[in-house]
Design a protein around this nucleic acid. Structure first.
Lengths: 336, 336
DNA sequence: AAGATCTGCGGGAACGATTCTGCAATCATG
DNA sequence: CATGATTGCAGAATCGTTCCCGCAGATCTT
């Protein structure tokens, strides 16, 4: 109703003929207020279009009203982290909490000063962030495990990438694949390690010689091409390539074409990360849907809970993944 | 030095043996302070590791310390908007300003209440946001023009997409293309209109019958395929397809394969938006680099300037684009 | 040389929300 | 019915910063 000019708690107090204290208590459901006055105050508040002043609230509560988001370096082109980010922002905004991206503008030390908590995703081994935050008692929620223990005001949301990898390889096997190769994201993140472990385990179980290469998160097109060709040069030649870094599957398709191999028929291709382009590729690429947006939401939710009740951790939650089967995973129609 | 416990302006005052007022003036370079005391105070401040309390500052200045970012609906998978977003966040964080994403969590009305200003990109015609903000005198910076006039506390950062389109079509022409088709993003955004205008103008100049289709920002793979096939069915068949929506070029490649056309030889393909996958495609796709991160930076910079001195607008800045020529744009080796 | 202006700095009042404490009035208890 | 516990609400302090004044002393004006 009131519109532009900001209406304060004092305006409500005057209008409702009670004190500031009572208004605050009535709105926040703390303190002792009768039901009658509580309802009355709330009615007046909505009538006046009251919105609490976050700055004043933060000052009084000695909070910053922001959480930090720590992304791996140089990943801004990757759809996964974008979706994750928007998930975090989405959830944080529900509580009128802002999100500050830390790897970009601030040193982690400074970021820790201006935030009430942190979300970090795909922490690289040995990242000093965890120790830093734990010693400052700043709540932390990580997407995927780090290689360090988290404290009592921290937690982790993770997916079982090893199981996903096994499921994917079993699917490829059912399509006729016998010698899958793996283009992994390196072993310096938990994600990469879990995928590698799944691949190695599967190969061991099926008595297959592993054929794996590694690629950085932000690998260039030529790096993807080179590493793909390297895998394809193996003897015996692989009949499937599973690739991890976001978007690299497109580069694998390109590399397969150089060998005159038709993806989805002569050689199967699958990605460990789904994204819109995967469906548009020729052929559409089988991929693991990681639901990054959901992950981001849950991480934000976790850190907000840890902010409200410190020392509730360490928390742990598991987030599901889904295998999206598309034409790139066969069945193999090789005539050998 | 002091580390975790927050050091306030009062601590500095005690240590430097001056008053709060003097400290504030010395640090903010407003008010009247001698050089000697200013330097002294600043030395003490850095010695104690002072960081201003944003909540208190915002409360006093009656600011929120945040700017809103208004994205088109359902675009979160698109690399362009992600880069743009990070550009905005990057610049905003430099001034300790947070970024609130508005299309996700809040209605624009609410977002306007909790932000000091807004950045909007690719506004759809008739979006009520502009009028809303202008009437509330909230600063606004838009990426690309809207179809409404902006007021004195607003501004626009834009790229000349019509000129980019002409440059791209001229390049295709030099590669042997004579009948380019255009897969546009619709006419409801300035970007889409500018591209269409460029395409129509070029066709008129070269006496070519236009062959254009439209695709939503968030078109699905099958929509991309269908629309691409529709363009390819034209008689005479186009010898190039220029496509606009982010990532759709991959779908166009797939569609071309259905016609047994080899992209980059039988039919040229180019994208109006560059992204990492464009380089990994087979063949790599010629594209217009829009520098979305730079755009985001400049938009944030503009709105921050408008917040500092209201009524300085309307501002206008032009942001350059670059044509990235790759193998998908020929030369044509058709044997007709 | 007397008044006017300027410089350097301190006192105090906000900004708006959240407690902590205090004080009546009501209720329970034996 | 007297004592103590509980309920419902108000007053006032507080968070850290900014900014309007005010006041000396120095400098400038005619």
């Amino acid at each position: 109703m009131q519109g532009s000019s900001s209406v304060t708690i004092l305006d409500i107090a005057r209008e409702a003929k009670v004190s500031r204290t009572t208004v605050s208590a009535a709105l926040s459901s703390t303190g002792r207020v009768s039901m009658a006055t509580r309802n009355h105050v709330r009615a007046v508040a909505t009538k006046l279009g009251y919105a609490p002043n976050q700055a004043a609230r933060n000052l009084r509560r000695s909070r910053t009203g922001a959480i930090g988001l720590h992304l791996p370096d140089q990943v801004t082109g990757l759809a996964y982290y974008m979706e994750f980010t928007f998930g975090v922002v989405d959830r944080a905004n529900e509580d009128d909490v802002a999100v500050v991206l830390s790897s970009l503008a601030h040193s982690t030390a400074l970021a820790a000063k201006i935030t009430d908590g942190m979300v970090a995703v795909d922490l690289i081994d040995g990242d000093p962030l965890i120790g830093d935050l734990m010693s400052r008692k700043i709540p932390l929620a990580t997407g995927e495990h780090g290689n360090q223990a988290v404290g009592t005001n921290a937690g982790t949301v993770w997916s079982d990438h090893r199981a996903s990898m096994l499921e994917l390889l079993d699917h490829l096997h059912s399509q006729g694949c016998r010698r899958p190769a793996f283009l992994g994201p390196g072993q310096s993140s938990d994600w990469g390690r879990s995928l590698h472990r799944g691949y190695e385990d599967w190969c061991a179980k099926h008595a297959v010689q592993p054929n794996a290469g590694d690629l950085a998160f932000n690998a260039t097109a030529s790096e993807v091409r080179e590493e793909s060709l390297h895998l394809l040069r193996a003897d015996p030649r692989p009949d499937a390539i599973v690739c991890a870094p976001d978007g690299s599957a497109i580069g694998v398709l390109t590399a397969a074409a150089e060998y005159s191999l038709t993806p989805g028929r002569d050689i199967l291709v699958a990605s460990c990360v789904d994204s819109p382009v995967m469906q548009m590729a020729n052929p559409p690429i089988t991929a693991i849907e990681l639901d990054p947006r959901g992950m981001g939401r849950r991480c934000a939710d976790m850190v907000l809970r840890l902010i409200q009740e410190p020392g509730a951790g360490p928390l742990e939650e598991k987030h599901p993944t889904t295998l999206k089967i598309r034409a790139s995973s066969g069945p193999i129609r090789s005539n050998r």
